Computed example of a mutant assay.
Amino acid sequence: MATDIKETARAFEAAAVLRLLPNRPRLLALGEPTHGEDTLLGLRNTLFRQLVEEGYRTIAIESDCLMGLLVDEHVTSGAGTLDEVMEHGFSHGWGASPANRELVRWMRAHNEGRPASEQVRFAGFDGPLEIAAAASPRQALTALRAYLAARLDDDLFPCTADTLDRLLGPDETWTEPAAMLDPARSAGRSAEARELRLVADDLAALLDAQRPRLRAESSPEEWHRACLHARTAVGLLRYHHWMADTSPARLNRLVGLRDQMMADNLLALAARGPLFVHGHNSHLRREQSSMPMGGQLLEWWGAGALASSRLGREYAFVATALGTIRHQGVGTPPPDTLEGLLYELPEEACVVDTRRLTTALGDTPPVPRVSPWYGYAPFDPAHLADSDGLVFVKDMPTP
């Protein structure tokens, strides 16, 4: 069996990934089983640089979609300094990652002196959501209204700018951290929030109804940003509404809504051209995702499942599995697990053909690995068919 498994693996490179796929996908997703490991992000960077040579021009990562606009502006035009972009262009603390910093630095250097058609682009595909709270809808709503107000007559608007500001109120009302655990602390079902949902819906509908005129009078980038602000405003207000829910389905609803926002962003980006996306395996897989939270098992359809249902063969997903994260208590994988079998491969990082691997495993599939650390999700061997390929990385170095 060991010989068969060795024959399923190739050196880590874009060519090996693309050879696994029946066609060149419009959206190529690479997952990871844990966050915060720069070794995995470094491999992501290498893969993206190679994919650029294959015609991919945009990378999207699991970070705030609105903050990511700052990064994209920097890499395409040089606006702002690298330090400023790393501080203000990433959510979830990703700006502190040396690998993310190197990605931005390389993208800016690559774009220097190139025409727009040859430049690489950056995007965040997550909503403005953190683990502890969701953002105020102010930025998305006011940007959307300002875009429309610069091009359309005032009598088309559902409310004035002053009324919008009054309905939004203090941002702290929306970002109250206690609301994640206590629905009563959420502003999502206040009278103002209910009215804002109608306003956001009307503004988004106005954007769509005036599409021919607006697209003719806007640059592609202005239109793209207006659509992003519309999606984000509607999605954030919907998310806040369900944060105030008291039913047992509350957390399931929230994780599903977050991935729905992710999927909408990915589909919009993929419509502009070939897209490489990197995020957690649970967000990008085709099958239903699950995780324990708040004393219950949450199940939802992730962004990858939603995007795949729309794109079909134009969506490809390559998962990542790994051997050790010793600094987090994750030691050498047991030999009867998938990670344990792959750990015997000689390469530190390799691309595995999951179809051939399934054949090599035969009728005795490996047992699922159990992680001693909550921050790492082992690869479930029952989901091999869900992936178009598998990247295996043996060891995470101790920081």
Score class of each variant (00 low, 15 high):
158 P>K: 02
112 E>N: 12
116 A>T: 14
9 A>F: 01
360 A>M: 07
211 R>K: 15
189 R>K: 07
152 L>G: 09
126 D>R: 02
293 M>W: 15
216 A>P: 10
339 E>C: 02
189 R>N: 11
240 H>Y: 02
164 L>D: 05
128 P>T: 00
366 P>K: 00
77 S>L: 11
329 G>E: 05
397 P>V: 00
2 A>F: 06
225 R>T: 04
133 A>N: 12
293 M>K: 13
276 F>R: 03
389 G>K: 05
20 L>C: 08
232 T>V: 08
350 C>L: 14
297 L>T: 15
329 G>H: 09
92 H>L: 14
314 E>K: 09
199 V>D: 04
71 V>N: 07
363 D>I: 04
318 V>Q: 13
330 V>L: 09
292 P>C: 00
377 A>K: 12
3 T>C: 10
26 R>S: 15
378 P>Y: 13
282 S>R: 12
212 P>K: 00
240 H>E: 02
49 R>D: 07
227 C>D: 02
364 T>I: 06
379 F>L: 14
120 V>F: 09
181 L>F: 12
69 L>N: 11
40 L>S: 01
42 G>M: 06
390 L>T: 06
259 D>I: 04
93 G>N: 07
141 L>C: 05
370 V>M: 00
133 A>L: 15
213 R>P: 14
52 V>C: 10
329 G>Y: 11
93 G>M: 08
99 A>M: 07
283 H>F: 09
381 P>I: 01
332 T>S: 11
101 R>A: 13
258 R>K: 01
111 N>E: 11
85 V>L: 06
384 L>E: 01
103 L>W: 11
165 D>L: 08
102 E>A: 15
191 A>S: 04
393 V>W: 01
366 P>I: 03
276 F>G: 01
371 S>K: 03
361 L>S: 05
302 G>P: 05
173 T>F: 06
321 A>W: 03
95 G>W: 15
381 P>V: 01
70 L>R: 14
120 V>G: 10
352 V>Y: 08
141 L>I: 02
381 P>M: 00
396 M>D: 07
257 L>S: 03
19 R>K: 15
238 R>S: 12
77 S>V: 09
212 P>A: 00
19 R>G: 14
238 R>P: 09
348 E>I: 07
218 S>W: 12
111 N>I: 04
115 P>Q: 05
83 D>V: 12
21 L>K: 03
181 L>S: 09
219 S>Q: 07
216 A>I: 08
121 R>Y: 15
187 A>H: 02
110 H>N: 12
359 T>H: 10
351 V>M: 05
165 D>Y: 06
201 D>G: 15
393 V>C: 06
86 M>H: 06
67 M>A: 13
240 H>T: 00
89 G>T: 06
112 E>S: 14
248 P>T: 03
51 L>Y: 02
23 N>W: 12
50 Q>Y: 04
149 A>D: 15
381 P>F: 04
260 Q>S: 12
269 L>R: 05
119 Q>M: 12
235 G>R: 01
125 F>M: 00
237 L>R: 03
313 R>P: 13
